[in-house]
Design a protein around this nucleic acid. Sequence first.
DNA 1: TAGTGGTCTAGACCACCTC
DNA 2: AGGTGGTCTAGACCACTAC
Lengths: 257, 257
Amino acid sequence: MSKQPKYRQVADALRREIDSGAYGPGAKLPSESELSARFDASRNTVRSGLNMLVSEGLITSSQGLGYEVRKHEVFELNASRFENLSFPQAGDAYSTDVTNAGRRPHQTFRVELTTASDYVASRLRVEAESRAVLRFCHRFVDDVPWSTQATHYPDWLVEKAPRLTEPGDIAEGTTRYLASLDIEQIGYADEIATRMPTPDEARLLEIGAGVPVLLWTRTGYSSARPVRCTITTFRGDLNRMTYEIGDLSARSENDPQ
Amino acid sequence: MSKQPKYRQVADALRREIDSGAYGPGAKLPSESELSARFDASRNTVRSGLNMLVSEGLITSSQGLGYEVRKHEVFELNASRFENLSFPQAGDAYSTDVTNAGRRPHQTFRVELTTASDYVASRLRVEAESRAVLRFCHRFVDDVPWSTQATHYPDWLVEKAPRLTEPGDIAEGTTRYLASLDIEQIGYADEIATRMPTPDEARLLEIGAGVPVLLWTRTGYSSARPVRCTITTFRGDLNRMTYEIGDLSARSENDPQ
DNA sequence: TAGTGGTCTAGACCACCTC
DNA sequence: AGGTGGTCTAGACCACTAC
């Protein structure tokens, strides 16, 4: 057991006290100067320790107010059922889910004509830099930024489905609109990754330090080829995803979830 | 556009240079004293800026060496096929996947008799604190810590399948062993979340600052009830998960993935 | 106005790596 | 030995929030 630096001792002590419940969710921590006296350390050293906990996502700080233990509450997205045509959902699948959870959804919407990045192009199986329509959605729950969703449609599809370039929302949902044109999505390839947010993402999602993002890429396939690529960026502290595989009839009887 | 603090200017400038490719993956950054001169800032201020980039997972630092741009390489786990009995895999599904990727897998293994946490108990649908067998696996790829996997089996199952308490590996795989006893897993409920690692996780996975973990919980169901709950903790910078839903025959023709 | 955290400095000493 | 980052201090001033 080697001797820990003082700022780590501060972080470890406070982390223990938070884990043990001495400071519950939402509780206010002692001020920097109080901690400075308690640990016989300079204010800067105490700040280093507090900074560790901020980076771990355990506490937040705000100027003039102090440090607080972070509250957690998560929203669960069932990716197996989401956008699935055999589970009937009127209109936007996301709003339905949120409303069902007793929360108030809200979103801003934007349509752009762009070129496909390497990442998107390889998934849509089109050439990089080729033209694409981007439908971008910024989603809130009870006015808290929740996720951003960027769906890319290849050029060839837009010719068949001109309403994709309409600036407003498509009432029945884009998936249903495309299905009505005989472009049915019968398969999804999902990819899930995580990392720390870029400064842009941190701004859009109002993410504080110490909160990672959850990245979900869904490529929708028709019987012939990929028709869209949706990249959703979730706040990692507020969201969880679920998938169902195979026969789960044993679960539906009385499910504690 | 409000004036940014100096340490942010340092971070932003360096981030731009890294994004633009001026410092590629693995490249060494200028030393703190050089940056201090370049930005006309004290060493501590430069350190604050560099610290931001470390927390974002963009660079690493090591004593006596300097700062380096982080290299990324990811291993992809196909969760739809993983452990799926209809895709025949001899023995351990994980080792097979890694070996197929041309990498060298290695793992340490441990069996414990424990009690089920609230989280596990609610998924196995047993009482909290009831007895359970934990089979714990610490996985490496080319000697780099990659993930930990903790599988919990309920008490009632262990009575039917005594080999679950054997300290060593089960050659044919536990899923196949259970299937041979007519305890077949016909459904999986997967949950995926992300957060910053606890200090314990950071130690086991040798995670540096700025790298989140990807948490994957799989509960396996027989036709009657849940039989196991597996919690996998991945290093977020090295792993990605994928799922396949529905008909993806259009993808298999010539897949760029 | 008083107390909180946010920024910044200058300097000290230590631990680690390379030569 | 010399350069690198790691830790720590004491003190200054600013910006925000509460009362």
